[in-house]
């Protein structure tokens, strides 16, 4: 016998994860999170839509936090759009950028421009602070993972530097 009441009660059992959580799961900053932690994080995340060629942020603008690409793609550039644009990176689904702004008050160091219609998830300094206050264990986890990601980037930069220096000395 199928009753609407029972269906309602058991509705939560096979709940599929939202698109936001699925995207967040790809990001190394949120690795080893439990479903409950993802649910808490989801409440703080802001979902934004950007049209093609729309700026997510501009170089030297005050930065408030990081973005994660849910759908679409974003290019990171220096220089003006017309002529001498220098593309530093092209990012796709599951990639993230702007995470340095979580730590310092420095202005943005590059432009971020959507290259197609994109949906981004924003996670900001104040959200991190709120989370740190509400659930310090979760906040700690994010900071630790962020440290890991930044360390990885630094190591990558070091490798490039060493490579460049070796090429120069040869």
């Amino acid at each position: 016998m199928k009753s609407a009441k029972w269906e309602n009660i058991f509705k939560g059992w096979n709940r599929t994860e939202s698109e936001t959580v699925l995207t967040l799961k790809q990001v190394p900053i949120f690795k080893d999170f439990s479903d409950k932690e993802f649910a808490e994080l989801e409440k703080l995340i802001h979902q934004r839509k950007y049209g093609i060629d729309q700026f997510v942020f501009k170089n030297r603008a005050p930065g408030e936090g990081m973005y994660i690409i849910m759908t679409g793609s974003v290019k990171i550039t220096i220089g003006t759009r017309s002529g001498n644009e220098n593309i530093l990176a092209e990012l796709g689904e599951g990639d993230f950028f702007g995470e340095l702004a979580l730590f310092d008050d420095e202005p943005r160091s590059a432009n971020a421009i959507a290259t197609e219609d994109s949906a981004l998830l924003g996670f900001f300094t104040q959200d991190l602070m709120t989370l740190q206050g509400r659930n310090p264990v979760l906040g700690q986890k994010i900071l630790f993972n962020l440290g890991g990601v930044l360390g990885e980037r630094l190591r990558g930069t070091n490798r490039l530097l060493i490579k460049a220096q070796t090429v120069k000395s040869e």
């Binding site: 934004r48 839509k49 729309q54 700026f55 997510v56 603008a61 408030e64 900001f124 104040q126």
Partner: peptide, 12 residues
């Protein structure tokens, strides 16, 4: 979108 980060900061 243009005022997103500034607006968010204002609310905070």
């Amino acid at each position: 979108n243009k005022y997103f980060e500034v607006g968010l900061k204002l609310i905070y």
